[in-house]
């Protein structure tokens, strides 16, 4: 079963790292195949930036993401740019303080969480992306919670590990 996830936002919100964490969780810790690609170029300096992950039980042949099952949007610009690239019956996850969603067609379900605000309450808004990953893990079930926690542990500096795990848990516990 092939699943495609696009993470989008401003450069600096941890978009690329989020994609990497999802891909590593699926590939190394859930024993699936995953292919992670990222956008390069001027978008890294404030425009809409995106990371794509393909997860599959079999080989990931076609490596890129066109329309995804899951879209995570951490900014309005990114939401506007990528919301049309969600498959019918797909899922859109937004930071509710940063994105004002439109009425979705094609039975797309939108889930909103104040990820950045929760991160600020934890003491550092830099973990807003990790709050969102916790929420995504709960809502979609594409990657296991255990795999995500291990992948986060590998991917953030040791001194921020506890904060990141806490952020992930907050997102995971948030009512979906």
């Amino acid at each position: 079963m092939r699943k495609e996830i696009r993470v989008s936002g401003f450069g600096g919100q941890g978009v690329i790292l989020s994609g990497y964490i999802i891909g590593k969780a699926a590939s190394i810790y859930d024993g699936k195949n995953a292919s992670f690609t990222q956008s390069y170029g001027p978008e890294a300096r404030g425009g809409a930036c995106a990371a794509q992950v393909v997860i599959s039980d079999s080989n990931v042949d076609f490596p890129l993401v066109r329309d995804s099952e899951v879209l995570i949007s951490l900014s309005q610009v990114a939401y506007n740019k990528f919301r049309t690239l969600v498959k019918p019956n797909g899922v859109v996850l937004t930071d509710e303080d940063l994105v004002k969603p439109e009425n979705e067609e094609n039975d797309i379900k939108t889930y909103a969480i104040p990820a950045t605000r929760i991160a600020e309450e934890l003491g550092n808004k830099i973990v807003g992306n990790i709050v969102m990953l916790g929420y995504m893990t709960k809502v979609t079930g594409i990657v296991s919670k255990e795999a995500m926690m291990k992948s986060i542990g590998d991917s953030v500096p040791e001194r921020f590990k506890e904060l990141n795990i806490e952020a992930f848990e907050k997102g995971y516990q948030y009512p979906g």
Binding site: G23, I28, S35, T37, Y40
Partner: peptide, 8 residues
């Protein structure tokens, strides 16, 4: 694509 792609 291959150079910038991340996989296992």
């Amino acid at each position: 694509v291959v150079g910038h792609m991340t996989e296992k």
